[in-house]
Design a binder for these strands. Structure first.
Lengths: 137, 137
DNA sequence: CTTTTACCCTATAGATTTACTAGAGTAATG
DNA sequence: CATTACTCTAGTAAATCTATAGGGTAAAAG
């Protein structure tokens, strides 16, 4: 299951990407139009900012804004930031690899074999989908 | 993340599929060779039995065995039984569809659009992969 | 009638997710 | 300089899910 954190994060990013100009948008605005708990959204936007996706401006007229062109933001980045590993199992993860405790031989493991295929496919989709692609109606 | 339930279930099924004959195999045997908590495995095999994948035999010489040819068991069936929905979000699920509470227009929703692609791809893999495919070394 | 094995129910520790609360810090504006 | 409008931070509570353990029952075989 996709966490709400990721879901909300994507919605917020798309919200920003759909706007013409890149001037700061307040959390409360996004929160209201996208039906997201404001405080929860706050922490999500914070992690997006800390990881170079968003910029923020404090004080009056402040808010969050995209740092890059939506075309330059692939979903792999967003997913890894918010959701974590793209692979369903650590033993087939590129960025978060971990050996299974129970598995003797990874090459003979059916789960590994299956999930590797799934990961390859999913990764391909996320790589080839940018924020701009998702923002078209 | 794939639950251990599903992981163990697949391992157990592959274990059975790799055997020549279809005579009953004890839980304890599978549990030991696959490094799975016996009690946990017990409940997993039970649900597989209740859903027509496995048969069981009580008493001496008893155990679990496959009811069908591994070629006839697509991973869609196994995944839906053990893991639940294949889609990462209920609003793109075929078998477990549910409307998002927060989402006004599903067609305009970026999360929906993205996850639909992922689901289609993943589903295709699971459909085209049978237990037999996973059982080859 | 004893052994062996599946079957079934309950409980629980731990982790994770989601969300709320309360306030501190910072910048623009009149 | 005071006010207002924001972001930022931390702590925490509730709810759910996960993985496992324990103990007892029922059926089959010899």
């Amino acid at each position: 299951m996709l966490s709400k954190k990721t879901k909300y994060g994507i919605k917020a990013l798309v919200h920003l990407a759909r706007l013409e100009d890149r001037s700061p948008v307040q959390i409360s605005t996004i929160s209201k139009t996208e039906n997201i708990s404001q405080k929860f959204l706050e922490s999500i936007l914070l992690t997006l900012r800390k990881n170079g996706i968003l910029g923020s401006k404090k004080g009056k007229g402040g808010g969050y804004y995209l740092l890059k062109d939506p075309k330059e933001i692939p979903m792999t980045t967003v997913m890894r930031l918010l959701e974590g590993p793209i692979a369903m199992v650590p033993c087939v993860s590129l960025n978060f690899y971990e050996k299974c405790a129970d598995c003797k031989d990874e090459d003979a493991c059916a789960v590994n074999k299956l999930m590797l295929k799934v990961r390859d496919n999913t990764l391909e989709i996320f790589r080839n989908t940018t924020l701009a692609d998702l923002s078209h109606y």
